[in-house]
Amino acid sequence: MPNIGVSISLLVIFGGLAWLLIRSISGREVDRRIIFVFIFVAVAAPLLFPITFQEKATSIVRDLFDRIEELPEGSHVLISFDFDPAMAPEVQPMANAISRHCLDKGHRVIFMSLWATGQSLMTTTLTNVILPEFPEKVDGRDYVNIGFKAGNEGVLNVIVSDFKKMFPTNVNGVPLDSMEIFEGIESCADLDFIVALGGGRPGPKEWVLFVGDPADVPIGVGVAAVVAPQLYPYYPQQVIGILGGIKGAAEYESELTHRRERFADMETPGLHMMGPQTLAHLVIMSFIIIGNIAFFRKKRSGSDSR
């Protein structure tokens, strides 16, 4: 049944595109609403009738994976959820995959957020991933949720030298001093690795500028695709690895499922979303071709009439 659905969807999309292509030869432009309809079908169809692709991690993703893999057990890793629900479809799969990886490796994970909306998304990861999949892990010893703090870069400026000044307690008001996970952790400089997830400001770039560089702590980032090019200047010196958009998430999930047996059958929303992304990209490329044909036809007919 899914195969029939996929076939019909592809037929509708590419049949329609072929028709528009023929129209464009007579120099006719496409109305934006038609483009919207095609994009809708290209995104919706693979969600209803899933098409899955195999992903192989590129070096920029593998570098991040390997760093978490190579850290000794018990290392302190901070994961910052600096994103909102809008970015969540792209960034939350990364957050879930990295959290799983860290906890499975026996690292101690500190969850925090510089975005008010990030705190709820952090709770979602804790509730849906960590509590059911890692019942043996203890809050305050193996992981801790210290929540959101307002102040943007100001927060980073403070925690780079003194963590507890900004976060005296965890999200439930328990003092950090009383937690085993915070033994030996005074500031960000005492952390072994930081994973900054986000895309806006403050986000991964601010983590690099205000914490990574001054405190000399390695940073890995996961960002919405649109922001990824902005982070390339920092790779590989200041940023260990970059997960860019849903493709980055899919590559990380693929690496996790292949290299860590426990996760062979885990949910892989990133990989599932590669179907809509692939089809949408093909549709956009088709429209660019159609637009150019129409443009050249119009140009030629314009010069002919002159």
């Binding site: 000794p72 018990g74 030298s161 003194d162 033994e183 030996g184 005074e186 500031s187 400089a189």
Partner: peptide, 12 residues
């Protein structure tokens, strides 16, 4: 109290 593997400390 410092965990194993620690080799430095900043007294603030």
């Amino acid at each position: 109290k410092l965990p194993p593997g620690t080799n430095s400390f900043l007294d603030r």
